[in-house]
Amino acid sequence: TYYTVKSGDTLNKIAAQYGVSVANLRSWNGISGDLIFVGQKLIVKKG
Score class of each variant (00 low, 15 high):
residue 34 D to Q: 08
residue 26 R to T: 10
residue 25 L to Y: 00
residue 10 T to V: 05
residue 38 V to I: 14
residue 36 I to R: 02
residue 16 A to I: 14
residue 5 V to L: 03
residue 31 I to P: 02
residue 4 T to H: 08
residue 27 S to G: 13
residue 35 L to K: 12
residue 36 I to H: 02
residue 33 G to C: 04
residue 44 V to Q: 01
residue 41 K to P: 07
residue 21 S to N: 07
residue 41 K to D: 08
residue 3 Y to I: 09
residue 22 V to P: 07
residue 13 K to W: 15
residue 23 A to F: 09
residue 38 V to L: 08
residue 23 A to E: 10
residue 24 N to L: 13
residue 44 V to D: 01
residue 47 G to E: 15
residue 9 D to N: 02
residue 42 L to S: 00
residue 35 L to N: 09
residue 12 N to L: 12
residue 46 K to P: 14
residue 4 T to Q: 09
residue 5 V to N: 01
residue 23 A to T: 07
residue 17 Q to V: 15
residue 1 T to A: 15
residue 18 Y to Q: 09
residue 38 V to W: 06
residue 45 K to D: 10
residue 19 G to A: 11
residue 47 G to C: 05
residue 46 K to L: 12
residue 45 K to V: 13
residue 31 I to Q: 04
residue 20 V to P: 02
residue 39 G to F: 04
residue 23 A to R: 08
residue 47 G to Q: 11
residue 40 Q to T: 07
residue 3 Y to T: 04
residue 34 D to F: 07
residue 34 D to L: 06
residue 35 L to Y: 09
residue 25 L to A: 01
residue 24 N to T: 12
residue 26 R to A: 11
residue 39 G to E: 04
residue 42 L to A: 00
residue 29 N to Q: 01
residue 10 T to C: 03
residue 24 N to D: 11
residue 13 K to Q: 13
residue 43 I to Y: 09
residue 47 G to Y: 09
residue 4 T to L: 06
residue 8 G to P: 03
residue 41 K to A: 10
residue 17 Q to N: 14
residue 13 K to R: 15
residue 5 V to W: 05
residue 10 T to I: 05
residue 16 A to S: 12
residue 40 Q to I: 05
residue 11 L to S: 01
residue 20 V to W: 04
residue 31 I to E: 03
residue 17 Q to A: 15
residue 33 G to N: 09
residue 28 W to Y: 05
residue 5 V to F: 03
residue 24 N to W: 13
residue 24 N to K: 12
residue 14 I to N: 00
residue 4 T to W: 11
residue 2 Y to K: 07
residue 22 V to A: 10
residue 28 W to Q: 04
residue 4 T to I: 12
residue 18 Y to P: 00
residue 29 N to H: 01
residue 6 K to N: 13
residue 47 G to V: 13
residue 23 A to Y: 08
residue 20 V to N: 04
residue 32 S to V: 13
residue 24 N to V: 11
residue 41 K to Y: 12
residue 16 A to E: 11
residue 7 S to R: 13
residue 39 G to I: 01
residue 47 G to D: 15
residue 45 K to S: 15
residue 25 L to W: 00
residue 34 D to W: 09
residue 22 V to W: 03
residue 39 G to S: 06
residue 9 D to Y: 01
residue 8 G to Q: 06
residue 25 L to M: 07
residue 9 D to I: 02
residue 40 Q to C: 04
residue 36 I to P: 04
residue 46 K to C: 05
residue 10 T to P: 01
residue 30 G to S: 14
residue 15 A to P: 00
residue 10 T to Y: 04
residue 11 L to Q: 02
residue 44 V to S: 02
residue 13 K to L: 13
residue 18 Y to H: 15
residue 40 Q to D: 11
residue 17 Q to W: 09
residue 37 F to Q: 10
residue 13 K to S: 14
residue 8 G to I: 03
residue 25 L to K: 00
residue 10 T to H: 06
residue 18 Y to K: 05
residue 8 G to W: 05
residue 28 W to I: 05
residue 33 G to K: 08
residue 32 S to W: 10
residue 35 L to R: 11
residue 25 L to T: 01
residue 38 V to Q: 14
residue 19 G to I: 06
residue 4 T to G: 04
residue 21 S to W: 04
residue 41 K to F: 10
residue 19 G to E: 11
residue 37 F to K: 08
residue 12 N to S: 13
residue 23 A to M: 09
residue 42 L to E: 00
residue 16 A to T: 13
residue 43 I to F: 14
residue 25 L to H: 00
residue 6 K to F: 05
residue 11 L to W: 05
residue 2 Y to T: 15
residue 33 G to D: 14
residue 5 V to I: 07
residue 34 D to M: 08
residue 44 V to I: 15
residue 31 I to R: 02
residue 11 L to H: 01
residue 18 Y to A: 08
residue 41 K to E: 12
residue 35 L to F: 15
residue 13 K to I: 09
residue 41 K to M: 12
residue 37 F to C: 05
residue 15 A to K: 02
residue 14 I to W: 01
residue 46 K to D: 13
residue 43 I to T: 09
residue 42 L to N: 00
residue 30 G to F: 09
residue 37 F to W: 12
residue 3 Y to W: 04
residue 23 A to D: 13
residue 39 G to D: 07
residue 19 G to M: 12
residue 25 L to C: 02
residue 15 A to D: 00
residue 24 N to Q: 14
residue 41 K to G: 08
residue 46 K to I: 15
residue 46 K to M: 14
residue 22 V to L: 11
residue 16 A to D: 14
residue 26 R to Y: 06
residue 2 Y to C: 05
residue 28 W to K: 02
residue 43 I to P: 00
residue 34 D to V: 07
residue 20 V to R: 02
residue 13 K to Y: 12
residue 6 K to M: 13
residue 20 V to H: 03
residue 25 L to I: 10
residue 20 V to I: 12
residue 18 Y to R: 04
residue 1 T to Q: 12
residue 8 G to M: 06
residue 40 Q to S: 07
residue 29 N to Y: 01
residue 22 V to G: 05
residue 10 T to Q: 06
residue 43 I to E: 06
residue 27 S to E: 15
residue 31 I to H: 03
residue 31 I to A: 03
residue 26 R to P: 00
residue 24 N to A: 09
residue 40 Q to E: 07
residue 43 I to H: 08
residue 27 S to T: 12
residue 16 A to W: 08
residue 32 S to D: 12
residue 34 D to H: 11
residue 43 I to M: 11
residue 22 V to K: 09
residue 30 G to Y: 08
residue 10 T to E: 06
residue 18 Y to I: 10
residue 1 T to G: 08
residue 13 K to V: 15
